[in-house]
Design a protein around this nucleic acid. Structure first.
Lengths: 208, 208
DNA sequence: CCTACCGATCGGTAGG
DNA sequence: CCTACCGATCGGTAGG
């Protein structure tokens, strides 16, 4: 083993560490990832694992960014080039629910879990998470506004309420499936989303 | 200070410990409550604080039950004697959103946070939490069924979807308020709930 | 990226 | 309900 590695190897190692940290954090929380167990799980020394980041806070921030990038690629990127407004809202809901149904991390959606872990804990992780979520929230609000202007949502629509509703429904998929074994959680979320968007099709009850 | 206390005093102490533990857990998670900091916060010794429960797991289970009882009293009890079906669903949503808007614990709704902390962590806390939530879920489903039978919801209604949607919307109030300062989170949740229940009143936008 | 180490805190217990 | 203590693990660092 051992010795210093090349820049490329170091970058690969860094990604491996972040992937492992994100997996652990999705199950035990971002605060629950300890340097010791992370290193053991990677077959590395503690100094080797944490050295790429400096300290635990920086590791947490890097892990959050890693998971946020996965989330962006899986949920937002597929809908990026869809027509703004209702078409894009529906595309986002579709990719979001596919992701919620088959999450990239063993403990389920990382972002949803982190938003409950750090909502009442001030600090850099809270702030970084809020910044990510504000961007996504603004995107939902913008598309809802466009949908109103296009006449796809009633003029009386509260676009903030729409965004809130979609976020709430998406986040609940993991806990409801994992807590009381509701295998249809993503389907319920999807149907409720369509309901909030006025696309009430109670019969179209299959995913994908 | 010190010395053993009477049964009544011990019971009071026990409640004080649980109240303090629930406050801490609502902010830092149930796993984040350490015996040492709990004791310090209570001006007690570690042995004094944990002695009432035996070990940390038993403390966690007792804290969960404590918070669940607060939740039951605040959310379910006010609606207990309301007519089953849609009237009771609306009453539950009302008390639920009042509670979400003014939660009993500094970190917000304890139950919602715990359901994200323990959804992917097997063990006694997961199981106890799931048991509580299953009871509440069954209550929502039962009232939704009654509402369908009474004609207050369409015959095609998926009652599981209704329960899922209400749970999702209620749980999201705390994180959205605390992460990006949405003071209208409870209001958005309430309006979305009414939407899911077919009581779409986009103009009635004031709480309580 | 490793070994070897630091002080602090963890959950828990013996004994009073 | 306290003091005093246990081994284990925490985050972090020096030095190579």
């Amino acid at each position: 083993m051992a010795g210093r590695r090349s820049v490329v190897e170091a970058s690969n190692t860094r990604q491996s560490i972040l992937s492992c940290a994100a997996d652990m954090a999705s199950v035990e929380g971002l605060e629950g990832v300890t340097v010791g167990r992370l290193a053991t799980s990677l077959n590395m020394s503690k100094a080797g694992a944490i050295g790429h980041f400096g300290n635990k806070l920086e590791l947490q921030l890097a892990t959050l960014d890693f998971a946020a990038e996965v989330f962006r690629k899986e949920v937002w990127q597929p809908a990026e080039h869809v027509t703004a407004g209702m078409p894009r809202l529906l595309a986002i809901c579709a990719s979001w629910m596919e992701y919620a149904d088959r999450p990239a991390f063993p403990g389920g959606c990382f972002i949803a879990a982190a938003s409950f872990e750090f909502d009442s804990r001030p600090g850099p992780v809270h702030d970084a998470l809020a910044a990510h979520m504000r961007r996504w929230h603004a995107q939902l609000v913008a598309d809802a506004k466009t949908a109103v202007e296009a006449g796809d949502l009633p003029a009386s629509t509260d676009v903030e309420q729409i965004a809130f509703g979609l976020e709430a429904l998406a986040a609940r998929v993991t806990p409801n499936r994992q807590l009381y074994g509701d295998e249809r959680a993503a389907e319920h979320a999807r149907d409720s989303m369509l309901n909030l968007l006025g696309q009430r099709t109670r019969s179209s009850s299959s995913l994908a």
